[in-house]
């Protein structure tokens, strides 16, 4: 780990200001992903701003009937929250499908959104990786790519976003609430929050330097069946090869977000519109421009099969 200075932030504004004043600063909340990457010197902040003491660990009802989830709410607490279990089961399910009990006790809502890819070439600082070192090349395209993206990929990067929670947030139309270093706040719909790799795979979200996530807003509950299905190599404690999160209404309409297939939680409005037509129609649109490798071609089929099973289960 590279040496760093450390401060415990006293307020959101102070945290954002401190981050803006130092381009090498990072916020630390749970730290379960950041410290992992710092140990490998993939992340090399020179200053850490501990934001755990800012009181952002509350879940509150919003006036419109939705929920406001504090950025620092731990994954365990979010999954266990009664309103989430009752009205946003997809979110609860996605959370408990991820990581381990120990990690979920520490990992936060904002941190989960900002998880970085598990691509093995990203994780090995001795290998070319455009995400880690722009211009060095992508080792995964002709290398081990079984777990990589099949859609929204570029010649620069085929990494996936590893979060389960973000798939649910995407399907639930969550909004990310932030504060910028100048003290202004804004909200970013989750659909605009993540970026595709393009030729700048090192830029992963819409956040600006020093911009600080304070919470995530969920719109009022929509009802419907909430199902999250994760397909993985181990029965537990493994990243998704493919995961499917759906909300399906009695009339067969609904929304679907897919994990393990792209640089971001993958959802397309036109695909949602075909939910009543069944999995093949949805996936035909969802993965229309799929560009899999030899090793991960199976994911195309797997997404359709899994979605088909999930739709059947919802109707069941």
């Amino acid at each position: 780990m590279r040496p760093f200075t450390f401060e415990r932030a006293s307020s959101i504004e102070a945290a954002a200001k401190s981050a803006a004043s130092n381009s090498q600063a990072k916020f630390i909340a749970g730290g379960t992903n950041l410290l992992d990457l710092m140990k490998l010197e993939i992340e090399t902040p020179t200053h850490l701003i501990d934001v755990n003491g800012l009181g952002l660990d509350k879940i509150d009802a919003t006036p419109d009937g939705g929920l406001r989830i504090g950025a620092l709410v731990r994954n365990t607490d979010l999954a266990a929250h009664q309103a989430v279990r009752r009205d946003y089961g997809l979110l609860s399910r996605a959370l408990v499908a991820g990581a381990s009990g120990q990690l979920r006790n520490v990992a936060t809502t904002a941190g989960n959104l900002l998880q970085r890819t598990r691509c093995p070439y990203f994780y090995d600082t001795n290998m070319p990786c455009n995400k880690r070192q722009l211009g060095s090349g992508c080792s995964a395209i002709d290398g081990f790519s079984r777990q990589h993206a099949i859609v929204g990929v570029s010649d620069s990067c085929i990494a996936t976003h590893p979060s389960d929670m973000a798939i649910a947030m995407q399907a639930l139309d969550a909004t990310v609430e932030t504060v910028k270093p100048d003290g202004s706040s804004r909200t970013i719909p989750i659909a605009d929050f993540y970026r595709l790799p393009g030729d700048t795979p090192h830029i992963e979200s819409a956040l600006e330097r020093g911009e600080f996530i304070t919470g995530v807003l969920l719109p009022p509950p929509t009802g419907g069946k909430h199902i999250y299905r994760k397909v993985r190599d181990r029965a537990s404690y493994a990243f998704a090869l493919v995961s499917v999160g759906v909300v399906i209404h009695p009339d067969g309409t609904g929304r679907v977000a897919v994990g393990g297939v792209a640089h971001k939680p993958w959802r397309i409005g036109e695909a949602d519109a075909k939910m009543q037509e069944g999995a093949r129609a949805v996936v035909g649109t969802l993965l229309a421009n799929a560009r899999p490798t030899e090793q991960n071609r199976f994911k195309v089929d797997l997404v359709e099969r899994t979605l088909g099973a999930v739709i059947s289960e919802a109707r069941g």
Binding site: I28, G31, L35, D36, K39, Q102, L103, N105, V106
Partner: peptide, 29 residues
């Protein structure tokens, strides 16, 4: 493993289990 992948470092902090390898000591004030 020192990376939160094996659980050998599990301890209980304020009543909750966590991986001691993935949290800084100075954050335990």
């Amino acid at each position: 493993c020192d990376h939160g992948q094996c659980g050998a470092c599990t301890v209980i902090v304020d009543g909750r289990r966590l991986n001691a390898c993935l949290t800084l000591a100075i954050m335990q004030e």
